[in-house]
């Protein structure tokens, strides 16, 4: 009787609320929401993995420095080079430091840092946790009486949330330095004069909104890549997919968050 009812169940076509794809999408959103809620619960409850958080901060922050240095410096030089002809047409090259500083601090530094970190760190976390999942290393951690969610997920999300703002500040400095090198080589502007002109139009709100964006981007990169890696299925193919989805989804969300935060901060501008 039991077998017969099982077979009958198997033969019946599966019913969906909307369509298969839409149902899967909503289920994924729900599962991701649960994952985020689990993160905040685990974040507040002891034990706290301070040693692992510091190790992850080093892996995510310090190991990204060379890439951020190069990208930041080049971004500053290229943006200044590209902006000069337009300002020159209006005889306004003296505004260059101010324009560059606004662009870097308000938009370029947080966005470029977020995107670079999503590519470098997001793919790394997605692939690492994914391969740990498919080779049963996460299960091994669990049977060693260690909470893998706390040890692997919470530590990484905290590390990305803390390190992306610091990397953003570092990148802004490097980009401004690149811009100064370009301005100085063309107009012989002194460093003091460049900084004074550059920061003349920068407000506390600009720095605050950039920091806020970086914190949100860092959290997004961490939680998205951990979610993808932690829920990897289907072996090595799944690991590749987790790494890829981590980057694509994190970048997509970063752009959405950028629009929302800019919109919100603009309401507060005088």
């Amino acid at each position: 009787m039991h077998d017969a009812s099982m077979k009958l169940k198997q033969k019946q076509p599966r019913r969906y609320i909307f369509t298969q794809k839409l149902d899967t999408f909503f289920f994924d959103v729900y599962a991701f929401g649960q994952f985020v809620a689990r993160f905040f619960r685990a974040l507040l409850l002891p034990p706290y993995e301070f040693k692992e958080i510091i190790r992850q901060c080093y892996m995510i922050g310090v190991k990204s420095l060379s890439l951020i240095t190069l990208t930041g410096f080049i971004t500053g030089i290229v943006f200044t080079k590209q902006s000069r002809p337009s300002l020159s047409d209006f005889g306004a090259t003296s505004w260059l430091p101010s324009l560059v500083a606004i662009a870097i601090i308000r938009a370029l530094a947080p966005l470029v840092t977020g995107l670079i970190t999503a590519g470098k760190v997001g793919s790394n976390i997605g692939a690492e946790l994914g391969s740990m999942k498919v080779t049963e290393q996460i299960d091994a951690m669990e049977v060693s009486a260690t909470n893998p969610f706390k040890f692997l997920v919470v530590t990484r999300v905290i590390a990305t949330t803390c390190m992306v703002p610091l990397l953003m500040l570092y990148m802004a400095l490097l980009a401004l330095l690149g811009a100064f090198v370009n301005v100085h080589s063309n107009e012989q502007t002194s460093f003091i004069s460049f900084i004074e002109n550059g920061f003349h139009n920068i407000s506390f709100l600009d720095i605050f909104s950039s920091l806020l964006k970086s914190i949100v981007f860092g959290f997004t990169i961490g939680i998205v890549s951990c979610y993808q890696g932690y829920n990897t299925t289907q072996g090595t193919q799944g690991v590749g997919r987790a790494a890829n989805t981590s980057v694509v989804l994190a970048m997509f969300l970063i752009f959405i968050e950028e629009i929302i935060i800019v919109q919100i901060t603009n309401w507060f501008r005088p």
Partner: peptide
């Protein structure tokens, strides 16, 4: 369960050694 797991040894099919 964590306390109980300290008294259970689990040898995985894939060994599950931490690669890092």
């Amino acid at each position: 369960l964590e306390q109980l797991r300290l008294r259970i040894g689990f040898s995985f099919q894939s060994s599950a050694l931490y690669d890092s």
